[in-house]
Design a binder for these strands. Structure first.
Lengths: 207, 207
DNA sequence: AGGAAAAGCGAGCGAATGCTCGCATTATAT
DNA sequence: ATATAATGCGAGCATTCGCTCGCTTTTCCT
């Protein structure tokens, strides 16, 4: 049995001052992860950058992992907000429009903070946050699947679960590789072409 | 400037005994990564599992990273062997056949050692091996692109670089998610369905 | 056989890290 | 104003880890 460090807050921040401390710690963790890498993200350094003492850090976070987990959560919430909004928006629109929107949002989501995204993707398995991240993934699948099922008439006969799996995997991968490989060198035109092509592929597949 | 540890062998193993030592060390590193995780893969532990002293370890590997790099290299070579063979085999065959073969091989490649694959994917960025891994990626792209260009007649008018990017991303992602999510629970039938669907999507996109 | 080169050994050094604990400061309630 | 709770502090303990160095053993070559 490998002992997984706890990731839940030790106590809840009640007063304004302590809420600020917690925020500063999470923010500092994110900044260090992006600018200096995971190795440099020691609790001492995080506290230093946050302008807080190590002691205070351990008042609110039982372990280093808990801090990273908090950053992951924050980032995932940002992304999920985009995805949820997009899917609500296209709920009653035809497949072509919906897929295009989804692809666009996927790329946007990866562009929120590519460097943080990359570092987090690497660190997730070691934070015990895998379960939470999987929960987000499942939510995406559920939402997409619900949409696809509501649009069955426009589609060929196809297993909804399988279709969802393939569509989500594809869109996610294109967005991921686009942003992480081509870095910041992304013209508007390139993005539009990419969205067009991916949309064409997915829509062609569905019907 | 962050100092990246060297990853080249300190000296070359010449005699049979030392070659065995080197192999034992790489093998031990892989086993620990898979069974106990990156955290537990200390040089002392690696030497212990390999049945070798730390001193000997440092005769051949200048750093811990060098060991992980060796494991990555070995694994990548196995995968590339499969991919190269597949692409040679289908060089003169029509798109439908070629894509089906590629998808199949991609899944096979991920199934070689899923756990190792996962751990390595997480650890690659911190070993300075990113460049080598990118080289493999570029090779795949080059090979696929060459194939696609040789089959232009079967395809619609489409930018070869873009098509390659989308196809490789898609196939890789489906294989990756299939193996890593559904773990070992993969019936032959499931795999065949998945290959069929992915092939359909990619082929439909190309023409 | 004998000497040189190659390979192997492992106690332990120095540096870094996660985290605790006893105490100081600030906010809230009465 | 006083008491109580909440928050903040940071030196330092305990541990781990990467790696070195002086030495022994094995192999190779003539």
């Amino acid at each position: 049995m490998t002992r997984t460090p706890p990731t839940k807050p030790r106590k809840n921040a009640l007063q304004a001052r302590s809420r600020a401390t917690v925020d500063a710690l999470v923010e500092a963790t994110a900044r260090i992860l992006v600018q200096e890498g995971f190795e440099k993200a020691s609790t001492n350094r995080i506290a230093e950058v946050a302008g807080v003492s190590v002691g205070s850090l351990y008042q609110y976070f039982p372990s280093k992992e808990a801090l990273v987990a908090a950053v992951i959560d924050r980032h995932n919430e940002e992304i999920m907000a985009l995805v949820r909004a997009a899917l609500t928006e296209v709920a009653d629109l035809p497949i072509e429009t919906a897929v295009r929107k989804l692809v666009t949002v996927a790329i946007e989501a990866h562009r929120i903070d590519p460097k943080l995204h990359r570092v987090l993707a690497e660190q997730i398995p070691r934070t015990g946050q895998l379960k939470d991240v999987e929960a987000f993934n499942r939510e995406v699948h559920t939402l997409v699947r619900a949409y696809l099922e509501s649009r069955r008439k426009e589609m060929r006969k196809i297993d909804p679960g399988l279709a969802t799996f393939i569509c989500v995997s594809t869109i996610e991968a294109v967005a991921h590789n686009t942003v992480l490989n081509h870095a910041e060198m992304l013209s508007e035109k390139t993005v539009r072409t990419l969205v067009d092509e991916t949309t064409r592929m997915v829509v062609g597949y569905l019907r």
